[in-house]
């Protein structure tokens, strides 16, 4: 199988707001890719385009060799961790897991994840009764229960307690070692430095930088990524 994400000439605007202005992006090597950028730079839009939630005006997106236009089935190869966890209130956790597996038409490997995130006591609880953090843990289970070649994580650490965070990072590393493409958006720069193999920096709808963290620091100058990014942004506005 063609293990790549190919995006070319991607444009998206919402009414008058031109959000993505010609994105060309090819990811053909496994690894962890941090998609960074200031607010409203188009990170989320880019991810949602890849997931088929946002429909671009122009451009082509191929995932694992399949064009995503009018084709919901390529998504079986993508695991997605949304930023906010909200579920049908009156379903139980176990029923939700069942539901997703029912929709995917395949069994997922949930047992280890449930154990790892200590979710066993909540399996019979209604989702409405869970705290935000616990719900996010359920979200993590839903994301990692399938062995998919592409994983997309949108602010993965939001709402998680330190123990779960450590577990999640470990999980991400494990998945990387299996040779997967993992896209992460985050505002937490230490996490980027810790995990990311490559940074894709979006600014005003275009990719303004792509490369490793050390490359970014070298290019822009600065001891940390934060400073490097700050430098990059001031230069842009100058």
């Amino acid at each position: 199988m063609d293990k790549t994400i190919k995006i070319s000439g991607l444009h998206k605007s919402f009414k008058k707001l031109h959000v993505l202005k010609g994105i060309d992006l090819t990811i053909d090597k496994p690894g962890i890719y941090a998609v960074l950028g200031p607010n409203a730079s188009g990170k989320t839009t880019l991810i949602k385009v890849m997931l088929g939630m946002v429909i671009p005006q122009k451009g082509n997106v191929e995932i694992l060799g399949e064009n995503i236009k009018n084709n919901p089935f390529y998504r079986k190869n993508i695991s997605y961790l949304p930023q906010i966890a909200r579920f049908p209130e009156n379903l139980k956790v176990s029923e939700l897991l069942e539901m997703i597996q029912d929709l995917q038409k395949r069994k997922g490997d949930t047992d280890d994840l449930i154990k790892g995130l200590k979710l066993e006591p909540y399996l019979d609880a209604k989702l409405v009764s869970l705290s935000g953090g616990t719900k996010q843990k359920v979200n993590v289970v839903l994301t990692f229960m399938y062995d998919n070649p592409i994983i997309i994580l949108d602010e993965p650490t939001s709402g998680l307690d330190p123990i779960s965070m450590v577990y999640l990072k470990k999980k991400i590393q494990e998945e990387k070692e299996k040779g997967k493409i993992i896209l992460v958006t985050t505002h937490i720069m230490p996490l980027v430095e810790e995990l990311a193999d490559e940074i894709i920096f979006l600014l005003e709808g275009v990719i303004s930088f792509r490369g490793s963290a050390s490359q970014l620091k070298l290019d822009q100058g600065g001891e940390s990524i934060e400073i490097a990014i700050a430098n990059l942004l001031t230069k842009q506005h100058a």
Binding site: L51, Y74, I84, R86, Q104
Partner: peptide, 17 residues
């Protein structure tokens, strides 16, 4: 409106909108 976030999760599944 309430099921918006969950709908997004579902939209990422391999099923038709």
């Amino acid at each position: 409106y309430n099921s918006r976030e969950f709908s997004e999760l579902l939209l990422a599944q391999p099923i038709k909108r």
